[in-house]
């Protein structure tokens, strides 16, 4: 028998990872990353960006407009707004990252279980459906009211809010691929459930899950800000973007910088993550090409 020449088919094709990149560098994705990177750097390098303490109260210097000494001005306690914004980004990112990790862990675990086992589907499906009937933010308020305000509790409530979406995404992929021929083939050579799920099936879900998680990240920042605004999130005096806006309500007419700067930061963070999510989705599935803003 003859030996076929190898690679005549498609020498130029790149290897497919579990995630098939159909398109390199979607513009939405690139812009999203470019917007998010400075935010992340800001959070990491906070001590080097500003030498002022975000908590130190300086009554004589209250409500100063932007100047060289205080680029974003000062608030009603005379605290430097730039310092508070910079340290506030740490909170937003901590809540975002923390809830994303927890959402991923629980979402993947429960999603796999409900896609693979019928009995688990009955339970997990009902619970996650019932969580999804509440408007997200209302549910977050209810949870926070029950367990009390703290940064960690914000993470928990965001996770509870967002995990059903990830469960659904993972479950859909598991159901789609559990009957696939390559899974059946792996089963006939003796692969067990664990191998089938985590090596053969789950990587196929990685793309959609990443999209979901980037939206979840944005959601977490928004929910944290909202809860802090209501006084249910990170307790004072810790600088959180949401509580900064809440404090600024009384000074909207006299000190515009107090509300615009944190508002702009929240918008920037949420927008960048949504762009990343949309971009990812388009890169993973060109058929869904949304006519986005870019």
């Amino acid at each position: 028998m003859s030996t076929e020449p190898i690679g005549t088919q498609s020498e130029k094709l790149s290897p497919p990872r579990a995630i098939a990149w159909h398109q390199r560098a979607n513009p939405m994705f690139v812009v999203g990353v470019l917007m998010l990177t400075p935010l992340i750097l800001m959070a990491i390098m906070a001590p080097f960006l500003t030498f002022l303490d975000p908590l130190s109260i300086n009554a004589p210097q209250k409500l100063l407009p932007p100047s060289w000494a205080h680029p974003f001005g000062t608030d009603h306690f005379g605290r430097d707004v730039l310092a508070r914004i910079v340290y506030g980004s740490q909170i937003s990112l901590r809540v975002g990252i923390g809830s994303t990790i927890l959402t991923a862990l629980f979402g993947i675990f429960l999603g796999v279980a409900s896609g693979w086992y019928h009995w688990a589907d009955a339970i997990i499906g009902r619970v996650s459906d019932s969580l999804m009937i509440f408007p997200g933010f209302v549910l977050a308020i209810m949870i926070m009211a029950a367990i009390g305000p703290s940064e960690f509790n914000v993470i928990i409530s965001v996770t509870v809010l967002y995990v059903p979406r990830v469960i659904r995404t993972v479950r859909a992929s598991v159901i789609e691929f559990r009957g696939a021929e390559f899974v059946e083939a792996a089963r006939t050579v003796g692969a067990g459930d664990f191998r089938l799920l985590f090596l053969h099936i789950l990587p196929k879900a990685a793309g959609p899950v990443m999209v979901q998680l980037s939206f979840g990240f944005a959601w977490a920042i928004l929910v944290e800000a909202g809860l802090s605004f209501l006084g249910l999130g990170t307790p004072p005096p810790t600088p959180s973007w949401g509580s900064m806006i809440a404090d600024a309500r009384d000074f909207i007419r006299s000190a515009w910088w107090l509300i615009t700067v944190p508002g702009f930061m929240i918008t920037l963070a949420v927008l960048s993550l949504n762009l990343i999510g949309d971009g990812l989705r388009d890169m993973l599935d060109p058929r869904l090409q949304s006519k986005g803003i870019l």
Binding site: A180, E181, F182, V183, A185, T188, H200
Partner: peptide, 14 residues
């Protein structure tokens, strides 16, 4: 062991 009909679908793509 089994040899499948569709060599495209029976090998795990990733």
């Amino acid at each position: 062991q089994m040899v499948f009909q569709d060599p495209y679908a029976s090998l795990t793509p990733h």
